[in-house]
Amino acid sequence: MPRGETSASVEAAIDLTVQMAGVEFRNPVITASGTYGFGSEYAPYCPVEALGGITLKGTTPEPRLGNCVPRLAETPAGMLNAIGLENPGLEEFVKTVLPQIKELPTQVIANISGFSVADYALMARTLRRDSGLAALEVNISCPNVKHGGMHFGTDSQSAETVIRAVKQETDLPVIAKLSPNVTDIREMARAVARGGADAISLINTLLGMSIDVEKKKPVLANTFGGLSGPAVRPVAVRMVWEVAEAVDLPIIGMGGISSWQDAVEFLLAGASAVSIGTGNFLNPSLPLDVSTGIETYCRRHGFSSVRELTGLAHRV
C-alpha cells in the first residue's frame, strides 16, 4: 500500500449490479408488490435511488375496492393479509401512475393480475416498453381473490398458458410470480419457463387463516389470507433452492426477509436478486440496510461482485 493511502481507498468497490432478463438493476434489492404502494409512499424513509427496483401494487383491468376489513391479522413472526387486489384499474394506472413512475430513479416493475387469460393479455398489450416500465411481473399467485390468479398459479398448464399469452402481447421482460401453495414448485417453474418467462419471482404468500377465540370466528373478513413475514422464510428459501435446480432462469427470491443475512441466504440458495415485502412495515429503511449489508458481506468474504453469491450454496 503506498504511503499515506488510507485502507478505505484501496478497498475495491463491490459490484452490486445484477442483470436479469436484459434489465440492469443497480443492486439486488427490490421491493415486493403490494407492500410498497406505487413507489412514493416510502420515499421519505428510504431514498428511491438506493433501491435496485420497485415492484408496484398489483393492477387488474378493472378498478377493485378489495375485500372488507379486517384485512390484516398478526400471527407468530408473521402476518396474514387479505387485501383483495384493491387497485385503481388499468385505465387509471396508465393515466396517473405511469407518469409518476417515469420520474422514479430506479427500475420499476409493474405487477399484473387478472381473472382470465384475456385479462392478462389485455394488461400486457397496454404495458409495453414505451410505458417506462422495466418489466412485467405476472401475478399468478394471489390467494385472496376467487379465481384471482392463484388458480393460474397452481395448475401448471394454466400457468404456462397465461405466461405465453403475456409474452405474445408485450415487449417487456416477463417475470412469473409463483405461488407456494402447490405440491411441487419445480413443476410450476418448468411450466412458466416453457411459457417463455424471462425470470421467476417467488414466493407469494402462503394461504392461512386465524380465528379469534373470544369471538369464535375468523379474524379476517375474507376468512383466509396470505401469510408473510419471517415465519415463511424457510419455506421460501427451500423453494428458491428447488427452482434454481429445476430451471435456468434468473430468480427474484422473497419471503420474510428482515435483515441482510436473510437476503444473502436467498442469494446463496440460487436467487439473483431479492424482494423485501413485509419487512418494509417493520423497518422502512430495510432495503437500504440490506444492500449495505450485502456489500459489507461481499467485502468480508472476498467477493468482488454480488453475482458470485447466486446459487453458491449448491456448489460448496
Binding site: 378489495g66 376489513v69 387485501i83 422502512p284
Partner: peptide, 17 residues
C-alpha cells in the same frame, strides 16, 4: 381506527370506504 400494516399508505390494510 383500523388494523394497520405499513402506516404510510403502501399496504392498503386499513382501507375505509
Amino acid at each position: 381506527e383500523e388494523r394497520m400494516g405499513c402506516g404510510v399508505g403502501a399496504c392498503l390494510g386499513c382501507s375505509v370506504t
